[in-house]
Computed example of a mutant assay.
Amino acid sequence: GGQPPTGYTGPPPSTPPPPGWRPPVHVRTPPPRHLPPQDMAAMDQAEQRAQRVTYGVGAVVGVVLVLLTCLLCSRVLF
């Protein structure tokens, strides 16, 4: 007997799988559905309404914060 090899000798040899080893596939996926058309004018109007609501809420919050700041400053000064 000889000495066993030292160090890494690489992976063990492998045999390739036989041709046609995969099982047959019988499931077919349906084609993708068609999306309904989009009403771009209605989407633009909805976006503008949402933007107006957002700006309105922001304005109300800004006014409330200014009033609270004025109230707190007047309490500190007087």
Score class of each variant (00 low, 15 high):
C73H: 01
A50W: 03
P12D: 13
L67G: 15
H26D: 09
S74V: 02
V63P: 03
P5F: 10
G1H: 11
A41S: 11
P30C: 04
V61D: 03
Y55I: 04
G7E: 05
G10N: 06
W21P: 01
S74L: 10
V64Y: 12
P17D: 12
G2A: 15
R52Q: 15
T6I: 04
P13I: 00
M43G: 14
G2K: 07
H34R: 11
C70L: 15
M40D: 06
E47H: 04
F78E: 04
P31A: 12
V61I: 14
L71H: 04
P16I: 00
S14R: 12
G1L: 09
P37Y: 04
V61T: 10
L67A: 15
P23Q: 09
S74I: 01
T29S: 11
V25C: 03
G1Q: 12
P31R: 14
Q48N: 07
R49H: 09
G7W: 09
V66K: 02
G62Y: 06
L72H: 07
P17C: 08
G2C: 06
G2L: 07
R49L: 10
L35K: 11
Q3S: 15
V27W: 03
V27N: 13
C70F: 14
V64Q: 05
M40G: 01
D39T: 01
Y8P: 10
C70I: 06
R22T: 11
V66S: 11
P11F: 05
A50V: 00
T9G: 15
P31W: 02
G10T: 04
L35H: 09
T9K: 15
Q48H: 07
Y8M: 04
A46V: 01
G10E: 06
Q3E: 12
P4W: 02
V53A: 14
R33K: 08
C70W: 06
R22S: 11
A46W: 09
G62C: 14
P5V: 05
A42R: 13
P11R: 10
Q3W: 00
Y55H: 12
T69C: 14
P36E: 06
P31N: 11
H26F: 09
Q51S: 08
V25L: 11
P19Q: 11
R28G: 02
P16M: 07
V25A: 12
P31F: 02
G20I: 01
V61C: 13
T6D: 09
F78I: 01
Q45Y: 10
Y55V: 07
G2E: 09
Y55K: 11
M40S: 07
A46E: 14
P30T: 01
T54L: 12
P37R: 10
A59V: 02
L72K: 06
V53K: 08
E47R: 10
V60H: 07
C70S: 13
L71K: 04
L68H: 01
P12V: 03
R33G: 09
V66D: 06
L71M: 08
C73K: 00
F78T: 05
P4T: 05
T69I: 07
P31S: 11
D44C: 02
